[in-house]
């Protein structure tokens, strides 16, 4: 047999092997984290792990409720800030802004996504935290250190701006322009067309973008860790400190081997993150892929 053909076949099989094994990484991560979580799942019931806020590793008490609450709070604040702003910005860039301006602004927004999380953290500590402590919190509560849910939310919101704006830009671009023209030709204003046609047609895409943003916010570690205070209690207001799951994992990796079950508990936290983020990501990507296919 021709050597070229043999080579071709061999290359094909090697490539296939690499492809399959890198896809299997998803499964491997799950198995790896689950395997390490088994001890804690044996010693404590799942509902206790998820709903108890008793966190005393030295007494083998592992309740994640406060950390889960912290994650949810920070994520919620981030989305509440980021969604309206990104939505307005994406509409502006795709519908109103002159081409020259978008050409200038898009790279800047991309730069925002390139800044490393730890730098966001530094900025949060230098600017956001003192600002909240001195100028915002005093209007609402007696005392806040500034290291708070709000600080985490603000920093996270800025980190997810580019993600939401980019996806929405794609979603809007997939809406056929004839549809907008149909509405405009009836005499609707640009804004009415956006409100009744563009946004309506893009609704699944907007949902997908939000879900992706949520899952991004869930997993962000260092930046949030640096500004949210890290007190293992459920926050009662946005000016309270909180302790999200990723921060918990990152902060305690050093001593997790010295306390029994601690490592298993932290790996279980990583497993929770993985499962939630996996589901959210897969769901929203499937929606986005469908949208794109329908338009082409």
């Amino acid at each position: 047999m021709n050597i070229r053909i043999v080579k071709d076949k061999a290359v094909k099989n090697i490539f296939l092997l690499l492809t399959v094994s890198s896809v299997l990484l998803v499964v491997l991560i799950f198995i790896g984290l689950y395997y390490k979580s088994v001890p804690i799942l044996h010693s404590t019931s799942l509902s206790h792990l998820l709903f108890s806020s008793e966190w005393k590793p030295s007494k083998a008490q592992f309740g994640f409720a406060a950390f889960i609450a912290g994650t949810l709070w920070v994520t919620l604040i981030a989305i509440v800030i980021a969604l309206p702003l990104s939505l307005l910005c994406a509409i502006y860039l795709s519908q109103y802004a002159p081409r020259r301006l978008t050409r200038f602004l898009n790279p800047l927004i991309d730069l925002l996504s390139g800044i490393p999380p730890v730098v966001y953290g530094v900025w949060g500590v230098l600017v956001v935290v003192p600002f909240i402590q001195e100028h915002v919190a005093p209007h609402f509560v007696e005392y806040s250190s500034g290291y708070s849910v709000l600080a985490g939310g603000v920093v996270l919101a800025i980190m997810i701006f580019p993600l939401i704006i980019n996806i929405l830009g794609e979603v809007f671009a997939n809406v056929p322009k004839e549809l907008s023209e149909a509405s405009l030709s009836i005499g609707a204003t640009q804004w009415q067309t956006i409100k009744y046609v563009l946004l309506k047609k893009s609704r699944p895409g907007i949902v997908a973008a939000v879900v992706l943003a949520i899952s991004r916010a869930f997993g962000e570690t260092i930046a949030v860790l640096m500004v949210c205070g890290n007190i293992p209690e459920s926050p009662h207001s946005v000016f309270d400190s909180c302790y999200p799951l990723p921060a918990l994992i990152a902060n305690n990796y050093g001593e997790m081997m010295s306390v029994p079950l601690y490592d298993s508990a932290l790996m279980f936290a990583a497993l929770i993150l993985f499962v939630i983020i996996f589901l959210f990501n897969a769901g929203s990507r499937i929606i986005l892929n469908r949208l794109e296919r329908r338009m082409n």
């Binding site: 990484l25 395997y35 994992i249 983020i277």
Partner: peptide, 26 residues
């Protein structure tokens, strides 16, 4: 191919702390 692309989209969304924890288990 489309399933593989989807898998990479999902892997792209997995946060680095999870990769870190997984790397640690390895």
């Amino acid at each position: 191919a489309s399933a593989t692309r989807l898998a990479f989209d999902v892997l792209f969304g997995i946060p680095s702390i999870v990769y870190g924890a997984f790397g640690f288990t390895i």
